[in-house]
Write a protein that binds this DNA or RNA. Structure first.
Lengths: 191, 191, 191, 191
DNA sequence: AATGAATGAGCATTCATTCAT
DNA sequence: TATGAATGAATGCTCATTCAT
């Protein structure tokens, strides 16, 4: 019936993961119910538990999705010849998401903020991993550019992204992304 | 019986506000129950409602507390002669809070992130106001320094604070605050 | 200070009783809070308990008020020479209250209906007493008219009043009172 | 396992509706907790919300039950040849319920009285509809009897029912129903 | 694998009543 | 007497999770 190679269930799992990623970004973890996710994925609530044992499993899947998305994006950027251009393209990609950022913030960032408040550190560690993944790739570009303090520079760039996303959200103004994005590009050019 | 000049109830109201501010910062809005706040303030749960009609009223009170704290801090900074020095002192104050930031993020920032996810815009507007309050004061300093693009510069500075707080939290590393704080000071000096 | 002969507190007690009677009629017993009554009487909530030990005491006071009002009305009607005319004047008085009846029903009747649902029979007995008080006076008029079955006739008349009040409320139509009132008058004339 | 043709859930929904109707009649809306209804239906409290989203939904269901019961009764009465006999049979049915009426009043009437006290008009409108449903059927019988003022006569008959139910309750005397019922039958015969 | 239906712990909120002064 | 404040037991409702089929 399915014209895909994958097993039947895998598709539904992916659908749930995608739904979780989207809804959790929009509503936050605590304000999102399993029913919300199930509805978005068009899957009966009871069935969700066949694929994810707990709500936290779905949050973890969303984190995985973010990680995969990041990987895919950086892989694509790797096709660009110059490391500086790769970073500039990364900033451009961020700015492109300005409308979403102004409404719901950086998907990874806001999720991390929420998970960081938890007393038990399980998912927050996972969230930290995703942030570090981005940080590492950025640092690699700075290293390729010949900078010794690549880690510091990476921190500054990613921090800049998080900051501008937060400010765009707080001020409900996408143009914050444009302005700060331009500044980051200028900074990259001046390095 | 009381050695204070203030009315009896006002003290408890302040106690509740302070408790709310602290607990909401630590646990986030959604994960915090009224019982949590009541317990922190050492007030019976039922009594909370004598002072605050709803949970959201407590959140709003916490926002007010942030605003007042900000006012007090900037008032103190105003005593410093040079606007550039004022801003550098502001950054220093941020860095001083590094342990807290690394554990729970920027109090105003994380609260704003959470409130921004709400569908109905009431408290998120209030949160935006607090962010803007800081932004305005910072912009005034840049204006005093003779910069025409004070608003942009203010955005960059505050955005830098939000970004470094978020990164410190994600990486669970207070030193992020030290490093990025130093960079901001350098940036201020170079302006 | 007070230019009345009565003790200071008595006035407040009357004020509370009047407020209770009015608010209980409008909102019903269960939907009325002590605060509602206190506010209507312009008395601090805590002070209510000095005059009435429990909420039920206030309900009982309202029943007493109804009884007193009834007494006063029938006393006034007693001034009319003919018993038949007294009854017709009673019906006219009911019809005069048509707007209130269409909105909130008969004060005594609706209160009785609500109290009758209680498992413990204390206040409902009291309510029954008030209804009986009216019934007795009406029966006396029928006796004076020379009817042997005065009790039955009284039941019919008062039942008619209760029925038309309920219907006026259900249909939200004061004219129900006018029409049924006219019928009762015709019935009285035909006896 | 089930020897019924109906879906599993429908049966429980009916059970809850029946329980709500019964308990609400006995205790009144405000004095009835969801736990009361759940217990009467032998359903866990949390599960009630699977079938009814709010307590008011349950009240509405009870109103629907009354409407359905009324429909069923009048349908049965329609089998009787003469309209006057139909009405007399209706009165007889009312009198048959005298024990219940003397204890808890007319199910529809007392519910309406309580709902009418609400400030917001949603359920009270629904309650009015049920009263009107009875009124309409009765009026149709009077029309069939050749009366031009069928609406007025219907009002008088139903009003008589409400009045006698209320009085039976207030006096805690089922015989009130018998006596007033007989009077109504006499009135019908005399028309 | 799929699904409608449980289940019960938890939470915000209300309110009659009491207390301290 | 008067009053603001305190108290705690309820109550409606939500929701993650489990169950039965």
């Amino acid at each position: 019936m399915t014209n895909s190679v994958q097993p039947r269930g895998a598709e539904k799992r992916r659908r749930l993961t995608a739904a979780a990623t989207a809804v959790l970004h929009r509503q936050g973890v605590e304000r999102t119910t399993l029913a919300d996710i199930a509805k978005e994925a068009d899957v009966p609530v009871g069935n969700v538990y066949y694929y994810f044992k707990t709500k936290d499993d779905l949050v973890q899947a969303a984190l995985g999705e973010h990680s995969a998305y990041l990987k895919q994006m950086t892989d694509a950027l790797d096709a660009i010849g110059e490391p500086r251009e790769r970073l500039k393209a990364l900033v451009a990609a961020w700015v492109e998401q300005k409308e979403t950022a102004a409404r719901y913030g950086c998907p990874t960032g806001t999720l991390t903020v929420e998970l960081d408040k938890r007393a038990d550190g399980i998912l927050d560690v996972e969230a930290g991993r995703v942030v570090r993944q981005l940080l590492d790739w950025v640092a690699a570009q700075f290293t390729a550019m010949g900078h010794a303090n690549a880690d510091d520079l990476a921190l500054t760039l990613v921090s800049g992204y998080q900051g501008m996303s937060m400010m765009a959200g707080a001020l409900r103004d996408p143009e914050v992304m444009t302005r700060e994005g331009a500044r980051l590009v200028g900074w990259l050019d001046g390095l």
